[in-house]
């Protein structure tokens, strides 16, 4: 309940995965594009967002398949060189989705796989964030997931904060919300 208003949590639950209907459901033809009547037949395979798949799984109405971002190909790539894998295009909420989906699909290897991926990538992100030149957006940024991006930005801002503190400077600033507007009107 504490994350009820959390935007990232909500968007993360929008990730799709394929499910297998163990029961039929009337009046929801929209879910299954191949349905001819306004219902989902028992035994059909449908793509559902996680928020729906999860609740239906708890009611034993569906079984959930592994989302495509945790397939064998991704695993191989992560094992080869974790830092170079483009996780964002696969799933911007890779770790969070992994944590939530793991109990549903009964695959015990996902936990250790996530941990392995995170540990190897985190080391890289942190060292790059602390040493990178701030003016240029590094090339590896588009590879990061949302969470890694936040870590990277946190590391960068602590670095700029530290540098600012060392030099000393203005401690009052114009409210950031006004900043953009002024410049564009001039």
């Amino acid at each position: 309940m504490s994350r009820y208003f959390d935007i990232d949590d909500i968007i993360m639950e929008d990730e799709h995965s394929a499910v297998f209907f163990k029961v039929g459901a009337n009046g929801v033809g929209l879910l299954d594009p191949s349905a001819e009547t306004n219902r989902v037949e028992q035994g059909s395979r449908v793509e559902l967002p996680f928020w729906l798949a999860n609740e239906l799984y708890l009611r034993q109405a569906v079984s959930v398949n592994v989302p495509p971002c945790f397939n064998l190909k991704t695993r191989r790539e992560i094992q080869a060189d974790a830092a170079c894998v483009d996780l964002r295009s696969r799933c911007p909420y890779f770790y969070e989705l992994g944590c939530k989906v793991a109990p549903l699909i009964g695959d015990r290897t996902i936990g250790s796989f996530l941990l392995y991926a995170f540990m190897n990538r985190f080391k890289d992100i942190l060292s790059k964030a602390h040493s990178a030149a701030f003016a240029v957006a590094p090339r590896f940024l588009p590879l990061l997931t949302k969470e890694e991006m936040q870590l990277y930005e946190a590391a960068c801002s602590s670095m700029t904060g530290f540098k600012k503190w060392r030099v000393g400077g203005s401690r009052f600033e114009k409210a950031s919300i006004l900043g953009k507007k002024k410049r564009s009107s001039e």
Partner: peptide
Amino acid sequence: AEHFGAVIHHLSLMRNKRC
């Protein structure tokens, strides 16, 4: 089947509310 249809609509409603 009616029950599960209703559940899906209920869940969608709750989801929209949350958003």
